[in-house]
Computed example of a mutant assay.
Amino acid sequence: MPQPGAGIGSGRRPGPGRAVTARELLFWSAGPALLLVSVAVAITIGPADLAVGEVVAVVRDRLGGADAGLSRIREGIVWELRLPRSLLAAACGAGLGVSGVVLQSLLRNALADPYVLGISSGASTGAVLVVVLGLGAGSVGLSGGAFVGAVVAFGLVAMLGYAAGGSPDRLILAGVAGTQLFAALTSFVVLTSADPEKTRGVLFWLLGSLGGARWDDVVFVGAVVSLATALCWAGARVMDAFTFGEEAAASLGVAVVRSRLALLLLTAAMTAAVVAAAGAIGFVGLVLPHAARAVVGPGHRRLLPATALAGAVLLVWVDALARVVIAPQELPVGVVTALVGVPAFAVILWRRRRR
């Protein structure tokens, strides 16, 4: 299997000196505007008949501008319900995309992402232990439980993978086993310890749900993802080196063990924050890095922000689709990402095989 990374089977120079192509220029100029438009339009989608102009008016009003001139109900729909939901979707999409880039680089495997490697399942188990059983609820909290679960899950998967030989393919197989183990533990805890109403709510949340988004969720996830992405971007050259293998990275002066541990902890933190706020959402971190790599190339200084931007736009629209596809009911976001992600990943694999 061709490995993702700088210069590996890509025919492009990984360094920052590579000329910007017309496609990249279009992406960087239109991408941020597309994200803003996507958030504004997504807010208008739903039972209440809203217009983009009303959304802009409410935001301007809340930021100290002119009065929006709308009823309190319509203002509440925009500011308290749909805007935080769309912003949280953007933050979660960006975090999952960046996590996928980091894992694919460190493990040199095109199939690596937080969901496949069991990190999301472990974070879900940690969060459910706090919610259902109340373990450490006072001192750890939901996000802390998710982070501990993510770290424990990846530690277990890493031990299994390296005990089986340490190859990237075997690590992926260990991740599949870890995913099933923690998914089973989560189901066992929920089904044996929660009442029927709580069981239904937790199971829906585990499939990925942004329906309960609040402004404090937006602030928390946005802060974690922004800080972790900035730190990962600062280590972009380290990830460029890792894509050629550990020995090559060490020969270039990279502290292999310390750098890998730091990047993996950043990935676990982003995954835990996303899971704590929105449940387990799969395939975003698997598919988006490949799509972004096709546009901006394999160099991580460009790949990381490009994937974050693409993930933010994607999940905003996925959440909007999940709200209306079977209205008045909602689909879990994770169901929609799987339905979209599996065919997209099949196309990516087919194209890579042809090359």
Score class of each variant (00 low, 15 high):
71 S>Q: 09
131 V>K: 04
124 S>C: 04
138 G>F: 08
111 L>K: 02
97 G>K: 04
110 A>F: 12
119 I>L: 12
138 G>H: 09
140 V>Q: 11
125 T>Q: 09
109 N>K: 01
121 S>A: 15
88 L>S: 06
115 Y>C: 03
127 A>F: 07
82 R>N: 00
57 A>R: 13
114 P>M: 01
104 Q>L: 00
105 S>Y: 02
143 S>M: 14
131 V>P: 04
95 G>F: 11
83 L>E: 04
144 G>P: 11
125 T>L: 15
122 G>R: 07
66 A>E: 14
79 W>D: 02
116 V>D: 09
127 A>I: 04
109 N>D: 04
130 V>R: 02
129 L>R: 10
120 S>N: 13
120 S>I: 05
76 G>M: 06
104 Q>K: 00
129 L>A: 15
127 A>N: 03
81 L>S: 11
80 E>Q: 14
70 L>R: 07
121 S>H: 15
138 G>R: 12
81 L>G: 00
108 R>A: 03
85 R>H: 01
135 L>K: 07
124 S>H: 01
62 R>V: 09
63 L>C: 13
57 A>D: 13
97 G>R: 03
78 V>N: 04
99 S>A: 15
143 S>T: 15
85 R>P: 01
59 V>C: 11
100 G>H: 00
123 A>K: 11
116 V>W: 06
110 A>Y: 12
109 N>F: 04
89 A>V: 05
124 S>F: 00
65 G>M: 05
136 G>C: 10
88 L>T: 05
138 G>M: 10
113 D>R: 01
113 D>T: 01
111 L>V: 03
83 L>R: 07
106 L>W: 03
107 L>F: 15
97 G>V: 04
110 A>D: 14
88 L>M: 03
64 G>L: 09
66 A>P: 10
147 F>M: 13
98 V>H: 02
79 W>H: 06
146 A>Q: 09
63 L>Y: 11
95 G>Y: 08
111 L>C: 08
132 V>L: 03
63 L>A: 13
64 G>I: 09
129 L>G: 10
86 S>Y: 01
146 A>D: 07
138 G>I: 06
78 V>D: 06
66 A>Q: 13
123 A>R: 12
70 L>G: 04
